[in-house]
Design a protein around this nucleic acid. Structure first.
Lengths: 246, 246
DNA sequence: GAGTGGTCTAGACCACCCC
DNA sequence: GGGTGGTCTAGACCACTCA
């Protein structure tokens, strides 16, 4: 029993993808489509709104909507989970925990995870692979209340996000990502198989539940050529996408 | 004569920023606020939708909306214009054209700018500075129809985006950004004042008008420590933010 | 000036959360 | 079970685009 506006959005997405509405073309008007689908204009606008926030279509008052792009942006589901993202692109995700230990939160960590300094956290160093090739090195800090669930996972667990949901009911629904470039350190170089000092894309992120409670904060370093982050944005909305490098 | 939903959104934004609604707290219900502002629920939901897409608040069916963050995300206006972004952070933007020449579009360029191969384009190499320090090197390709307006600009023009709008009426309203890390080449190293091979954040972007007509495509390389890109995202929306490194 | 999207209203029902 | 957000309707007026 999916929502009507979702069905319509999906239909339009397909029509754009298969070339019925090529890039640059004008879409039918709201009233036309509302009539055709047998819904009110409001519902149709909701469907259009979804496509707009995905960067597929644009709009200006007074003129018909136009197609901006044919490739839909990633869902947040794919963004937050490395494994789900990899599988969506038909690549085999892998994971390996290299180190894992509990410790007291440093001041910086406590601030980021909204804990009191000295509270327990779980530090995990994890190597992620794509089709067996090292892709990135994660240095993740989990809040103490999530530590037990993470430690219970197997070392080679593919999808931590999904496992955390299944075993502990933790839903990660918001994230903040900071992207910049750094030189590979000794550990980075050894695990990722690159030379020390070579460029890495660094993504520092914090993920929180829907209530805004931080679950984890992480420093992820991507091997060049393995992953590119894509952001499609507009005056109206700006989604983030992680894309495999060509 | 601003829109009612914009006024309400602005009011809520302020109330969140000044601590009236701290992070993690619950906001009043839609009906309450609608009544208080003398608008219908629909209008109020529109205001909430804006704040949601800015990453300020989150929502779950059945529960009240909660405050996720106090700092509003950047507007696209600030994202697309380096100068506007810099000034918003109280830093002095600078620009200097190092090279500029017309050429026939390569196949790749033509594809990205939706031109026919061989059509004329304008290549510009531009150094951008923050408070006099080199921050990034831009290799920009402008579509031929925008070339004349760009060439007419002074070499040290601060804001190309704004000037293009003022002189040619070109409004850039959509962009696609790809982020990864690369090693500094000879030119990069010389102009940015770093060693060859040192890590740079690369942002490849294409900007289009509201009709989806590409205006420019660019390869921007940021000196480490000068700029960090931030993306705040959620199940509902994911805006991109460019942040000065600390 | 006809058509289009942007805004707004006043209702309604449902799914879900929490008490 | 009462309150909340999510969905949907059927109207209305306005600002804007374009022929």
């Amino acid at each position: 029993m999916t929502r009507r506006h979702q069905q319509i959005a999906e239909e339009l997405r397909r029509a754009i993808a298969d070339g019925t509405h090529p890039v640059g073309s004008e879409l039918p008007s709201e009233s036309e489509l509302a009539l055709a689908h047998g819904v009110s204009r409001g519902t149709l606008r909701q469907a259009f709104g979804t496509l707009q926030s995905e960067g597929l279509i644009g709009s200006r008052q007074g003129a018909r909507r136009t197609v901006l792009s044919t490739t839909p942006s990633q869902s947040f589901t794919e963004l937050r989970s490395f494994a789900q993202w990899a599988r969506a692109g038909d690549r085999a995700p892998g994971g390996l925990v290299l180190r894992s230990h509990r410790a007291k939160a440093t001041e910086a960590q406590a601030a980021q995870l909204q804990l009191v300094p000295g509270e327990m956290v779980l530090n995990v160093l994890r190597l992620r692979t794509l089709d067996g090739e090292p892709a990135l090195l994660e240095r993740t800090v989990y809040a103490g209340w999530a530590a037990a669930a993470v430690e219970a996972l197997p070392d080679d667990c593919e999808s931590v996000t999904q496992s955390l949901y299944e075993t502990a009911g933790v839903v990660m629904s918001h994230g903040e990502h900071h992207l910049d470039a750094v030189a590979a350190g000794t550990t980075d170089a050894r695990e990722l198989g690159v030379r020390r000092g070579s460029p890495l894309l660094r993504v520092r992120r914090t993920t929180t539940t829907s209530e805004g409670r931080p679950v984890e904060t992480s420093d992820d370093r991507y091997r060049p050529g393995s992953v590119v982050f894509t952001v499609r944005n507009s005056v109206q909305a700006n989604p983030l996408v992680r894309t495999a490098a060509d």
